[in-house]
Structures are given as structure tokens and as C-alpha cells.
Design a protein around this nucleic acid. Structure first.
Length: 482
DNA sequence: TGAAATGTTGGGGCG
DNA sequence: ACGCCCCAACATTTC
């Protein structure tokens, strides 16, 4: 039997915010007391435990959420362990009437939601999951034959034809909390690096949490969006939204993003093309998540058959040079160093470094996927897996296998003044712009004048572009024939 | 959400 | 004036 004072557990997952949270709103509307909780899940089979950079973000995001809940007079109850066990135990402990949450689309999450539903059903509790992590539910975007889309353009067109994502629900003005339950301290989760604390300066770069997400969106909408289509390709410009980590942790929902942009567009029709361009990027996020939902092996196995046989080389020393930004290709090294030092890399550069790893070095995309997973603050299983497979040519709607970025040309085209390289590869800073993307082509006296000694202060190119390109084409031909 | 090789065209230098 | 060559600029195709 249930009574009106039996609480509802609101289980925070990848929705670390209070605004636009339909599940929380529904819990409040039930009139029952609410227990907000977060489980640091260490026990669900198949889970990709968050990487080091992601853990740093998670810590601060949880701290921000906990503080916002405290301001409302409640407490975020944090526990650690198997999410299923911890939730079941907590529900029994307080005799909860139900568990509400936002739906998550990771392969292991869907199984977990199923198990929770079963357990709740058997013990007379309500288990409800609400949409909100995505704009459109995967079941709602299928082609004419009821199958998932495997090509982005028709996928996104179908999304745009579908009923518009509904308006965000307001943040609760007050919450009737269930008192008296305590959990772990955030520090006990040991999410922060120490010995050494390599993220000591990251608080100057990022503001994890809902307020930070709101600030970032506001900054983007008042400035960079106006030149997004072009600016987004130039890594030296601050022309992208930088919302990815906020989005990953659900500090802002895609619905909030969607409606903020549509509203901006309504008031500024001249921004239509820019807004559409940005929303199509949100569309790629959507596409990746839908793909992962339909094809749970996306993070591990080539989406396209045949790539199992790809003749990778996988040299450990080459991988290490790539990881440390020591390949001798300035745009690649700049990107890898930006990643290492800030937990982030500009998207254009992500494509360049990924193409370089898989095609110039012939190192399996999974090595890159793993490195990004550990080093990106916005590491996201769906985006990461889909992105790497896209670059490697094995993914859905992937770049054709013969599309091999020339890192020198990419640098010259998208970092034409060399500002990005100079920022992250300071040992090349004094080189004239003409040679900044190809130091090896500079005359000896120019190198000397810039204090550059190739092979000493800056590495010689790890591979020759032309030779590497030919080798990659030959490798791809070998699986195509088979 | 490429790059390189190959093909075509047209202006200009020059015998 | 003409043919020839060079080559930049652009287009097409190939990988």
C-alpha cells in the first residue's frame, strides 16, 4: 500500500540540472516528497567508466547541482556502487513510491533501466523514465520501411519534419524534499586528479554546471553565432559554442538549446542560415545517439563490414608521438596539445588529428577513441564512437576511405595566419606564417632565425605525407577487394 | 565535413 | 598575323 508521504526518488544521471526536467516536474506534481540522488555507478556490466577529464567535469558539475539543491533546502544524496543495487536499496530504505529519471541511451543503460523497471514492478513501485537527453526519441525517427537511418541528411530531414521538440518545462520554484537521508561526500568519489593535479588551472577555462552552461549559451548567442558557418572552421577563433561538455552532462537540454536558437532566429531572420548550421551540428549529436541506440556495438566494432580485416599497423611509438603532440605536423601537434592541456579540442582539428592517426599512421581508430575518451571533458560514447568511425571510413555515412586530409593544407586553409599553431606549439612561434604549417620546407637560415632546430626543438615529420597517403590508399584497397 | 591527378581553356611571350 | 609553348586558372575524374 502506498500513502501520499512515500517519497519519489529523482535519480539524476546525464541531466545534471534543475531547469527543463520533465521527470522532476512530474515528481513535484505528484505532491510527494522528493529525494534527489546521484549514483556514481561502478557496477553496471558493459559500462564505459568515464575518463579522467570527464571525471573532473563530473565532480564540479555534481558540486554545482548539489549547491543548487541546497539552495532550495534539500540535499543531493550521492552514493557509489552498482546503480541497480544502490537504487533498490535506497528505495527500500525510504519505502519510496517510485523512481523517476531521464532516459539514457548508452547500451548498458537500457539494460539497467529494464532491470530497474522489473524490480520496481515486483516491489509495487513506479519506475518512470522521461525523455530529454535527446531532441527526438530513436523510435520516432525511422525511414519509410521502419528502419533506422544510416545516412545523416535524410535522418536530419526526417527530424525536421517530425513534430517540433516541445518547449522546455520551467525550473521548479520550490521542492518539497524528503528529509534525513545522507550520502557520500562528492570528494569521496575521488573524481579529481591528484599527484599531480593536472587540472589545477581548468577552473579558469570551464565552468561546469547549469549556471556555466547558461552563461556559455548566452555568450554564444550574443556573439559567435552570427558568423558560425564560417567561423566554426577556424580553430584560432573562438567561434564555436563550446557547449559539448555541458550538453554531455545534461546541464542544458537539447530542447532548451533548440528553442533558444529558434527564438533568436525569429527575432533575427538574417541569422537563419547560421542557426540552421548550428542546429545541424546538434543533429549530428542526435544522429550519433540514435545510431548507438540501434547499434550498441558502435564503440567496439566497425559499423561497416569488411573493416574487421583492415591491415592496421598500430605502432606504439607512433601512437605515443600522436598523443603527446610530437608528430612534426604542426596543426596535428597543436590539436593534441590543446586536448592534453585543456580537455578540449576544436572540432575541425579533431577531424584532422583523427584522419592523421587512422590514415597517416594506420593506427586503429579505437586507439584514438580510447585516448579521446580519457582526455576530453566532453567525452561522449555516442559522439566519440560515431565520430571516429566516420573519420576512419568504417562508420555510418562515413567519409569515403579515400578522403585523406593533408594536414599541411588543412592548416594553411583553416589556420591561415598560424595563430592556432603558435598558441599550442610555442617552439614554432617565431616562424614566418609561410612556413608555420610546414617547417621542414623552410630554408635553414629561416629556421635558425626562428630558433627552430628540426629533430631537436621540434620533431621532423613522423611520416612523409605522400608516402603515408599512398600506403593508406593501398591498405583500404586491400579490404575493398576482399 | 578532400586531395591529387588529369583535362581544358585562354592569355601572353616569343620566334 | 600566326603557330607554338608555357602556365595559371578552372573543371573534371580519380583515388
Amino acid at each position: 500500500m502506498t500513502n501520499a508521504e512515500q517519497p519519489i526518488i529523482y535519480w539524476f544521471r546525464r541531466d545534471l540540472r534543475l531547469d527543463d526536467l520533465p521527470g522532476l516536474q512530474a515528481a513535484i506534481a505528484s505532491g510527494r516528497p522528493i529525494l534527489p540522488c546521484y549514483i556514481h555507478d561502478t557496477g553496471t556490466p558493459g559500462e564505459w567508466a568515464p575518463g579522467a577529464a570527464s571525471c573532473w567535469w563530473l565532480h564540479h558539475s555534481l558540486a554545482a547541482l548539489a549547491s543548487d539543491i541546497t539552495a532550495l533546502g534539500g540535499e543531493l544524496v550521492i552514493r557509489s556502487g552498482s546503480a541497480l543495487n544502490e537504487l533498490v536499496r535506497l528505495a527500500e530504505e525510504i519505502n519510496a513510491a517510485g523512481i523517476y529519471c531521464s532516459r539514457d541511451y548508452a547500451p548498458w543503460s537500457e539494460g539497467l533501466e529494464h532491470d530497474l523497471y522489473q524490480d520496481c514492478d515486483a516491489s509495487g513501485r513506479e519506475f518512470k523514465r522521461f525523455p530529454g537527453v535527446l531532441l527526438f526519441e530513436p523510435e520516432a525517427v525511422l525511414n519509410q520501411s521502419g528502419q533506422p537511418f544510416k545516412v545523416f541528411t535524410p535522418f536530419w530531414k526526417a527530424c525536421l519534419r517530425a513534430p517540433e521538440p516541445r518547449s522546455p518545462v520551467p525550473a521548479p520554484a520550490s521542492i518539497y524534499f524528503y528529509p534525513g537521508v545522507t550520502g557520500a561526500d562528492i570528494d569521496d568519489l575521488e573524481l579529481l586528479p591528484r599527484n599531480p593535479d593536472w587540472a589545477a588551472h581548468w577552473r579558469d577555462l570551464w565552468q561546469p554546471g547549469e549556471a556555466g552552461a547558461r552563461n556559455q549559451l548566452q555568450a554564444f548567442l550574443t556573439r559567435a553565432i552570427a558568423n558560425y558557418s564560417e567561423g566554426r572552421n577556424h580553430p584560432a577563433q573562438d567561434a564555436t559554442s563550446r557547449l559539448s561538455a555541458h550538453m554531455h552532462f545534461g546541464e542544458i537540454s537539447p530542447r532548451q538549446l533548440w528553442h533558444a536558437l529558434r527564438s533568436l532566429q525569429d527575432h533575427n531572420p538574417e541569422l537563419t542560415a547560421e542557426v540552421d548550421k548550428f542546429l545541424s551540428q546538434v543533429g549530428w549529436r542526435e544522429f550519433s545517439h540514435h545510431l548507438l541506440h540501434h547499434f550498441p556495438t558502435l564503440p567496439e566494432k566497425p559499423f561497416r563490414p569488411g573493416f574487421d580485416e583492415f591491415p592496421w599497423l598500430g605502432s606504439p611509438t607512433a601512437l605515443e608521438a600522436w598523443q603527446h603532440g610530437q608528430t612534426g605536423y604542426p596543426i596535428v601537434d597543436a590539436g593534441m596539445r590543446e586536448l592534453w592541456q585543456t580537455g578540449y579540442m576544436h572540432n575541425r582539428v579533431r577531424m584532422i588529428v583523427a584522419s592523421f592517426l587512422t590514415k597517416h599512421l594506420l593506427i586503429p581508430w579505437r586507439a584514438g577513441e580510447n585516448w579521446f575518451w580519457d582526455t576530453l571533458v566532453d567525452a561522449d560514447l555516442a559522439n566519440n564512437a560515431a565520430g571516429w568511425q566516420w573519420v576512419a571510413g568504417s562508420g555510418a555515412d562515413a567519409a569515403p576511405y579515400f578522403r585523406i586530409f593533408n594536414p599541411t593544407l588543412q592548416g594553411e586553409r583553416f589556420d591561415s595566419e598560424g595563430d592556432y599553431v603558435r598558441r599550442w606549439v610555442p617552439e614554432l612561434a617565431a616562424l614566418p606564417t609561410r612556413y608555420i604549417h610546414e617547417p621542414a620546407s623552410a630554408p635553414a637560415e629561416i629556421l635558425a632565425a626562428a630558433d627552430v632546430e628540426l629533430g631537436d626543438t621540434y620533431p621532423l615529420p613522423l611520416v612523409d605525407h605522400r608516402e603515408a597517403r599512398e600506403a593508406a590508399l593501398a591498405a583500404y584497397r586491400s579490404i575493398r577487394a576482399a
